[in-house]
Write a protein that binds this DNA or RNA. Sequence first.
DNA 1: TATATTTACGAACGGTCGGTCGTTTTGTAG
DNA 2: CTACAAAACGACCGACCGTTCGTAAATATA
Lengths: 211, 211
Amino acid sequence: MTQDGRLIRGERTRSAVLDQALLLATVSGLDGLSLSQVADALGVSKSGLFAHWRSKEALQLAVVDQARAQWTDRVIRPALTAPAGVRRLWAVHLSRLAFYEAKVLPGGCFFANAHFEFNARPGAVRDRLAAEQTDWMTFLTGLATDAVTLGDLRPGTDPAVLAYHVEALGVCTVMQAPVLGPGITYPHARRALLDHLRAVSIDPTILPEQP
Amino acid sequence: MTQDGRLIRGERTRSAVLDQALLLATVSGLDGLSLSQVADALGVSKSGLFAHWRSKEALQLAVVDQARAQWTDRVIRPALTAPAGVRRLWAVHLSRLAFYEAKVLPGGCFFANAHFEFNARPGAVRDRLAAEQTDWMTFLTGLATDAVTLGDLRPGTDPAVLAYHVEALGVCTVMQAPVLGPGITYPHARRALLDHLRAVSIDPTILPEQP
DNA sequence: TATATTTACGAACGGTCGGTCGTTTTGTAG
DNA sequence: CTACAAAACGACCGACCGTTCGTAAATATA
């Protein structure tokens, strides 16, 4: 291991593998993930992957964990620590983007997409994803208890029903999203969010970059 | 071929294969469908399947088509031809059941589940499923233009937004479904629907049986 | 420089997959 | 019964999969 803070070789390839696996999982699903394809895409030997994870399932779980961790660090935490007066804006736009990215734009172009646009059938991986959905619900509830109520987000819906919608969408929620509709492109939605962020004096760089 | 109306041998196995394939697709997804598993589950040779469909994708498309045809014949058509005064009830309950079956009860126990709880990534099959979602939206719109408006089904939602929700759920819609929640089991929901059907003098047998 | 450990590699294995081919069984018609 | 066509079978193919293993290269420590 190096004594300074730089990544040693193992950690660097480990990170690259996880990123590539997440990317491929958005295409063929977490079930359809192929270790051979991951290795070939990186120009790395397939057998080398087993030096970092003991099995394919272990790598899949690592992908889920990293995706959740990144989403939490880069989006949810900034949202929760934002000034109280602007959390409502965050709630509406994040839910809108998450919904938009996760389902409406297959194979899309945005951070949130790569972190939601996979699903899995087998047991352990599916359970991990279910936990992730619970986290998202917690996040929404956290927003609701302070600057905005769930009723504001979706009038007439109690939390239990919203929880089912979270389960149903596999990731986020179903709120009123009037900006979404035919003819509204994704760059349009993103630009609108950036404008809003600037308008309320939130650092727009907390919004993940487009790859 | 026989001269009377009975199914000849080929059609019988063809139907059995489609049913089994639909069942397995609800477990591992339409992508994860294995011809070997289908054949083994039926005690049939794998190579015999290629006498009915030229490729695996052709069989997958046939599965989608049959699922949609059955759903239309057994559920949507009866709903559309129901007495005008009760279509609102149908709309609410069908959407509720479809939502419930398709997403909340994985590996469930009901007709609608087996016809919705699969998804696919590759091109042709995915396109076919997208067409199915459009049909469902048309059905809901057809209900709305007569006995009930979409506004009644989900207050404050315009059709464009609802269309996105249809896309998002992958099958149906997101309407107000107050009966769904923690502790509300599926038999509960089904019994409630049967009671409602009887209350409005609709033949309950149009509701598909539980397998 | 010499040594030890991490890291990556290439070859190979058993298994499953979709798909092909020639043959045999099954059911119908003459 | 014979003739014929539909239908199903079993063996086999090449490809890809996840995984193991022995070995070589890269890197850290001394």
